[in-house]
Nucleic acid binder design. Structure first.
Length: 682
DNA sequence: TCCCCTCGAGTTCA
DNA sequence: CTCGAGGGGA
């Protein structure tokens, strides 16, 4: 099943079908994980399945069923040789957080629920041990029963195995009924030893220490469990009576340590930033610990407030699991779809089982072109290693497991209009040549036409263009300027769902303002193949009217510095094409091209005159758009890539790779303050 | 002719 | 961010 669609785009019917699928998948994987200790999915993949289920249920609350896995955890306990044990209070798993921002949201939610100021809350942070939760009941100081978490409400009786875990105290100096909860785990060293033994004995090795611990804990023969050296970290103590009286989580951990339990290092934090620090410290120590951890558990410190917060559905409201997110993850390619851009270029995109990579749930990865598919020999069903380039853009690193399916074939027809697809001479990409009639291409072209470097029409993005196009209100870029007339045929825009009087008049004003357009924007908006903002600037610096440019010979264009014969020919040919020319004539009936180049009026002695400027990071005092206009109006060219030709780099907050690159190349850098001061002088 | 650099075009998620 | 192609110097 394709999980490619954004939740917002799902129809009720599709949502229902996908929910059914997700629920049965989650149940199946729960069973594999809890009952058989042989998961098929990585944790990241499993978490992503759950995240998708929640997102859809949140959007379509009417589809939530009482039996949805979102209402329970774990698997039904079937055919278990162990007696069932009902927990006094449910042992729920925690909601996941993947960023400091998520943690902040969790704090805000807890504070809102308690109707107190978030600043008044304190949190106890503990490393999240990658093991299994277990509960131990003591009566009058002696172990009465040990159980697994099971499905959160009912677990299995494993008292005989709990008894032989060395750091679970056999007696405690407290009378009455006491429950201690904690995490059973296997050290990395024991895990390796046991696996090498298993391999030499011809048995299948465990996938990871947690699976090994799970398998070891559910042994009928306690002697086997004993040989596996399981260990225990306690994190919770309570009693139905008043035998245990602790006010905070920190006190609880201290008390547990005093009565002979092992507890992890922990720290009291006052806000999300401090939690973030603890999390980073834990991550740094991760490799040197003798056991595996997969994040930080963040708990509201006050036990009283914990009780008041209670539970919501499957998770307690008082704690959150702040997980480490891997920078790479494996996932299965479930489908390969084709996307089409404004130029007609067809790009294959792999749809993968959603996985969490560096804190984002990734479900689509571009494959760039069909050579990539050939080179890496990619097929639907293969397992791929996914990373995020620069920790942002999803990237397929390699294929790690072949499915044996046939390599994905180059398509013969356009995914949007069905017309035949061509592979242009000596070029890696496939193209749909139906430029003016292919819906996919036209929608993308109109969107580009209205976008920031071109006509910059505010309120006309891809969503709106798609809507207007399907409706017939806009069929070509020129129709943008006839939108208002079209109201007689299609009805007032302000009455369309999602539109109002204000948004409609804002759009019309923005369009009206662009009926005068600079030559640079006009040429850029033509989307001449190979001509973007930069080349358009070169062209309009050499030709001062659109007529001159149209009339130019290949040689005239070739004469421009940095434009060679091949580009010159492409540009020249573009203007020899009758459909392109008709498009230009139509446009010129609706808009006036200002002859002045954007450099006009700029002071040639100014600091930014004819300089190449790059912005990086966030500007605090103004939008990047405004800053860009300031420098371009003093004659600068703004580009996005730092290179040796760059004259200035303006550095904002949280600047990344570009800043580093600029330092290496020794390019002059200006802070936002210096920049503001320098443009004021101009 | 062979690199190295730059640009265009396409891509993702929160 | 990445890939491929174009431009231009070696």
């Amino acid at each position: 099943m394709a999980t490619s669609k954004s939740v917002d785009d799902l129809s009720l019917l599709e949502a229902n079908a996908e929910l059914a699928f997700l629920r049965s998948e989650i149940r199946r994987h729960d069973d594999l994980y809890y009952n058989r200790a042989m998961p098929e999915l990585s944790d990241a993949e499993y978490d992503a399945l759950r995240a998708r289920l929640y997102a859809i249920e949140k959007k379509f609350p009417t589809l939530i069923s009482a039996h949805s896995p979102s209402r329970s955890i774990g698997a039904p306990i079937d055919n278990s040789p162990f007696a069932k044990v009902r927990h006094r209070s449910p042992m729920l798993s925690l909601e996941n957080a993947f960023s400091v921002l998520d943690v902040e949201r969790f704090f805000a939610r807890a504070a809102r629920f308690l109707r107190i100021n978030p600043a008044a809350l304190e949190f106890c942070c503990e490393p999240k041990i990658d093991g299994l939760s277990a509960s131990v009941i003591y009566i009058d100081g002696k172990i009465a029963r040990g159980s697994t978490r099971g499905n959160g409400y009912v677990g299995e009786d494993i008292t005989h195995n709990i008894m032989i875990i060395s750091d679970i105290p056999k007696t405690i100096p407290i009378q009455g009924e006491i429950e201690i909860r904690g995490e059973v785990y296997m050290s990395s060293e024991d895990f390796n030893d046991i696996n090498s033994e298993r391999i030499s004995a011809g048995e299948p090795p465990f996938a990871n220490p947690r699976n090994a611990a799970a398998g070891s804990l559910r042994q009928i023969d306690a002697a086997i469990t004993a040989s596996r050296h399981l260990q225990f970290f306690a994190y919770h103590i309570s009693s139905p009576g008043d035998a245990v009286n602790v006010e905070t989580q920190v006190d609880a951990l201290n008390m547990l340590a005093n009565i002979g339990c092992s507890v992890t290092e922990h720290r009291l934090c006052r806000d999300a930033t401090e939690v973030g620090k603890f999390h980073e410290d834990a991550m740094a120590k991760r490799g040197s610990l003798r056991y595996e951890i997969d994040g930080t558990v963040v708990k509201v410190n006050s036990i009283l407030l914990q009780r008041r917060l209670g539970f919501s559905g499957r998770n307690p409201r008082h704690s959150v699991a702040f997980k480490f997110s891997a920078s790479e993850a494996e996932s299965t390619i479930t489908d390969i779809v084709l996307s089409i851009g404004r130029s007609g270029r067809i790009t294959p995109v792999a749809i993968i089982n959603p996985v969490n990579v560096s804190g984002a749930i990734i479900s689509r990865v571009t494959l760039h072109n069909f050579d990539t598919i050939d080179k890496k020999c990619i097929a639907v069903g293969d397992t791929a290693l996914i990373a995020r380039a620069g920790d942002v853009i999803p990237k397929l690193v390699s294929i790690t497991k072949k499915s044996g399916n046939q390599k994905f074939e180059v398509p013969s027809v356009c995914p949007s209009c069905g017309s035949p697809v061509t592979r242009r001479e000596g070029v890696a990409d496939m193209y749909c040549e139906n430029r003016y009639a292919c819906p996919g291409q036209v929608i993308n072209y109109i969107t580009y036409f209205a976008s920031e470097p071109c006509f910059d029409i505010i309120g006309l993005g891809k969503i709106q263009v798609e809507e207007f196009y399907t409706e017939g209100r806009i069929k070509t870029a020129v129709d943008i300027f006839r939108l208002q007339e079209k109201e007689t045929e299609f009805g007032p825009l302000s009455q369309k769902p999602g539109w109002g009087v204000v948004s409609a008049s804002n759009l019309y004003n923005s369009i009206k303002a662009r009926k005068h357009i600079s030559l640079l924007r006009f040429v850029t908006a033509l989307a001449i193949p190979g001509v973007g903002e930069h080349i358009a600037k070169l062209l309009t610096d050499s030709f001062s009217t659109i007529e001159e440019l149209v009339a130019a010979s290949s040689n005239d264009i070739d004469a421009i510095d940095n434009i060679g014969a091949s580009l010159a020919k492409k540009v020249h040919l573009f203007f020899r094409n009758e459909i392109n020319m008709a498009h230009i004539r139509n446009l010129l009936e609706s808009v006036t091209v200002d002859k002045d180049s954007p450099n006009y009026g700029a002071n040639p002695a100014g600091k930014y005159y004819k300089k190449i400027v790059v912005f990086t990071g966030n500007l605090v005092g103004m939008s990047r758009e405004h800053a860009k206009q300031l420098v371009t109006s003093s004659g600068a060219i703004v580009t996005s890539v730092v290179s040796s030709k760059t004259d200035f780099v303006i550095v904002g907050e949280r600047a990344g790779a570009k800043l580093k690159h600029a330092q290496e190349l020794g390019i002059p850098m200006l802070s936002e303050e210096e920049f503001v001061a320098s443009v004021d002088i101009d």
